[in-house]
Design a protein around this nucleic acid. Structure first.
Length: 259
DNA sequence: TCGCCATTATTG
DNA sequence: CAATAATGGCGA
């Protein structure tokens, strides 16, 4: 499979992050050309994370986009043009990106701890998820809204009553606050990430996961992360995990103001 | 500029 | 039809 495919998955051209992200976001270039972006991204990462070159692309966006196993949607170019030409004329076609399970997982997890992210934090997160800053921002925006639930009960989180394993996959209790400046990256990588690894892997392995599936899954996630079966994942998965670990730590180190 | 809101449009 | 990513307007 080509990395391009994977990438395209989470490459909404709708994001004008370049415009929105003041802090020169690295990943801006990608939106333009899939092919080009690939190289740029690759270069970028390989440069940043010297040891593991392209693996990042894979694991990140790749998350076998669960959303729809059969036909991986290529939101970017193909889908767009192929869409409805009828109204696609001069209209603004929204490209509704379908975030992968992994992306959602990370997003949700983060959201549980932080409802508001600083610009840089969002950017970092976006890098990690290989999404646009704008998308992350929007996502949080929407989440905040339905988290509040107040007006329109838009989203129904799996379990809204318990504050435990409800939405996220990672039991917040075991995780160090993303934004708290105290914990060391080591702590994160050694302890927390183990869990993360598990759930990420899980996410990758179970393509069939749906948002609803989080319901059930989240519970196991809460207690039995490191199931033997998950550890038997392929090398690529492991590699991926490690990769994430790496850049995650990297981003973590950047640390800025907290909420 | 961002956040929040209401709305729109896509996806399943 | 429900869920939700993304857009645009408004205010701080």
């Amino acid at each position: 499979m080509s990395v391009a495919d994977l990438i395209s998955q989470s490459l909404p051209e709708a994001c004008d992050s370049r415009d929105s992200s003041p802090l020169s976001t690295i990943l801006e270039a990608e939106e333009n050309d899939i092919s080009l972006q690939m190289s740029s991204v690759e270069a970028l990462y390989s440069d940043t994370v010297s040891p593991l070159p392209a693996s990042i692309d894979l694991l990140l966006q790749d998350s076998p986009d669960s959303s729809t196993s059969p036909k991986v949607k290529l939101p970017t170019s193909i889908e767009k043009s192929t869409m409805k030409e009828g109204k696609g004329l001069g209209k603004k076609q929204k490209v509704r990106t379908v975030f992968s399970q992994m992306q959602l997982c990370i997003l949700k997890d983060r959201f549980q701890k932080q409802k508001y992210l600083s610009l840089q934090q969002m950017q970092e997160l976006s890098e990690v998820l290989n999404l646009c800053y704008k998308q992350v921002k929007t996502w949080f925006q929407n989440q905040r809204r339905n988290a509040r639930g107040g007006k329109k009960n838009h989203t129904k989180w799996p379990n809204s009553s318990n504050g435990v394993a409800q939405k996220g996959c990672l039991p917040s209790g075991n995780l160090p606050m993303w934004s708290n400046q105290t914990w060391s990256s080591q702590t994160w990588s050694n302890q927390t990430w183990n869990n993360s690894q598990a759930w990420c892997t899980q996410a990758w392995n179970n393509q069939s996961w749906n948002n609803q599936a989080w319901n059930n899954q989240s519970q196991i996630c809460g207690e039995e992360f490191l199931l033997p079966q998950f550890q038997q994942n392929s090398a690529s998965d492991l590699e991926a995990s490690q990769t994430i670990d790496l850049f995650l730590n990297d981003s973590m180190n950047i640390q800025l103001e907290e909420v």
